[in-house]
Amino acid sequence: MSFEVLNPGMLTLLQDSGRIGFQHLGITTGGPMDEHAFYWANRLLGNKPDAAQLEITFGQLQLQVNAATTVAITGADLSATLNDKAIQPWLTYTVKPGDVLAFGAPKSGLRTYLSVAGGFECEPKLGSCSTVKREQLGGLTGLGDALKTGDILPFTATTEFTEQRTPKWAIPDYDAPLELGVMPSYQHASFSHDEQMTFFTSEYEVSQNIDRMGYRLSGAPVKSSLDGIISEGIAFGAIQIPNDGQPIVLMKDRQTIGGYPKIGCLSSLGAGQLSQRQPGQIVTFSPMDVADAEVERRLFNRVIFG
């Protein structure tokens, strides 16, 4: 009643909805970079919303099936195959013992989510299975390890299968131009009108320097009137502006405090869309009201949680 890891790929991590309530101790939340894709994978299978899944970054993962179950694949198109036959994301598939599920190079997006009926079984650490390598916390071993060859991923076998597919309106286009709403917050007022106009009218390129901690962007520099600030708590999606003026969007494995001025913050759904962009892709920003972000999230939660 498991999958066996034949090839762990570039970076494959067990994630649930995250480790909540420990940031005051310096422990970050972890969890899925792209909440939209993560929650849809569990919804397709009728799982609990926070059931543990695999987050597969850049592909190359190969799994051997040791028991019958149903899986859902959402997020990036990583050239997935089932027994060497191409399959598409945003659908469910039945698998049986001896099958091989594999992921190749990214065609669109960066991160695929693989959910199994009932969720993967994992011993929680501080209330969560989410893997944070930097903090050596979570995952199969509880020590923050990425998957490795020979790992066994347990689940409860099932022969029940109902084909499910994500509605077209809910499937993002990761190659489309991405405009992200920014809520004014933190040190927004320390950026002059001209600096804010520069930020909101410029194109920024996703750099090579991206990971689960943050996305460094390159483009027109912006400057705060502050040389620095006293370190303070940092939310998912906060946009730091360091001394070189190049924005850094802080992601799920971010540090819990930081001392750079922040021009604003993305919504969690917006940050999730950014997490699917590859180096070289272009993003732009526009002002966003907190109320609009709340409405967006409520509509999403109504679809996912009912």
Rank of each mutant, 00 (worst) to 15 (best):
residue 268 S to R: 04
residue 257 I to G: 05
residue 71 V to T: 05
residue 108 S to T: 03
residue 236 F to S: 04
residue 22 F to M: 08
residue 7 N to R: 13
residue 258 G to W: 03
residue 247 P to M: 09
residue 214 G to P: 12
residue 151 D to E: 09
residue 89 P to Q: 09
residue 196 Q to G: 10
residue 83 N to F: 08
residue 152 I to H: 07
residue 85 K to Y: 07
residue 124 P to R: 13
residue 191 F to R: 01
residue 233 G to M: 09
residue 97 P to Y: 13
residue 58 F to R: 08
residue 298 R to G: 05
residue 123 E to P: 02
residue 25 L to E: 14
residue 4 E to K: 14
residue 215 Y to V: 06
residue 74 T to I: 11
residue 36 H to L: 01
residue 31 G to Q: 00
residue 11 L to I: 12
residue 305 F to L: 10
residue 96 K to L: 09
residue 243 N to F: 06
residue 211 D to P: 03
residue 134 R to P: 00
residue 240 Q to R: 13
residue 27 I to S: 01
residue 201 T to L: 03
residue 50 D to I: 04
residue 121 E to A: 13
residue 42 N to E: 06
residue 68 A to G: 02
residue 205 E to D: 05
residue 45 L to I: 02
residue 158 T to E: 00
residue 202 S to P: 11
residue 212 R to D: 10
residue 143 L to N: 12
residue 218 S to I: 07
residue 173 D to Q: 09
residue 174 Y to W: 14
residue 161 F to M: 04
residue 209 N to M: 12
residue 142 G to P: 06
residue 194 D to T: 15
residue 130 S to V: 06
residue 171 I to N: 01
residue 114 L to P: 07
residue 304 I to H: 02
residue 248 I to H: 03
residue 242 P to Y: 01
residue 110 L to H: 03
residue 52 A to E: 06
residue 230 I to T: 12
residue 288 M to E: 15
residue 275 S to A: 14
residue 190 S to H: 11
residue 12 T to I: 11
residue 239 I to W: 10
residue 113 Y to E: 05
residue 189 A to C: 02
residue 18 G to S: 02
residue 146 A to L: 03
residue 108 S to Q: 14
residue 139 G to P: 03
residue 292 D to Y: 10
residue 271 A to P: 00
residue 87 I to M: 13
residue 162 T to M: 08
residue 19 R to G: 01
residue 297 R to P: 00
residue 138 G to T: 02
residue 28 T to A: 08
residue 49 P to Y: 03
residue 288 M to F: 07
residue 38 F to Y: 15
residue 14 L to T: 07
residue 207 S to W: 10
residue 146 A to N: 06
residue 272 G to Y: 00
residue 149 T to S: 15
residue 226 L to N: 01
residue 216 R to Y: 11
residue 292 D to M: 12
residue 51 A to P: 07
residue 134 R to F: 08
residue 157 A to E: 15
residue 226 L to E: 11
residue 259 G to I: 01
residue 52 A to K: 05
residue 87 I to V: 15
residue 65 V to Y: 09
residue 186 Y to R: 13
residue 10 M to H: 12
residue 63 L to C: 03
residue 219 G to N: 10
residue 200 F to P: 06
residue 278 Q to F: 01
residue 159 T to F: 05
residue 23 Q to R: 11
residue 83 N to S: 11
residue 39 Y to S: 09
residue 69 T to G: 02
residue 199 F to M: 05
residue 204 Y to P: 00
residue 293 A to R: 02
residue 217 L to N: 09
residue 167 P to Q: 09
residue 304 I to W: 04
residue 19 R to M: 00
residue 142 G to T: 07
residue 94 T to F: 03
residue 247 P to F: 10
residue 179 E to L: 06
residue 16 D to N: 04
residue 254 R to T: 06
residue 283 V to G: 00
residue 243 N to E: 11
residue 204 Y to Q: 09
residue 114 L to A: 08
residue 104 G to W: 10
residue 232 E to K: 09
residue 76 A to K: 00
residue 249 V to L: 08
residue 1 M to H: 10
residue 86 A to C: 10
residue 125 K to E: 09
residue 5 V to W: 07
residue 291 A to V: 15
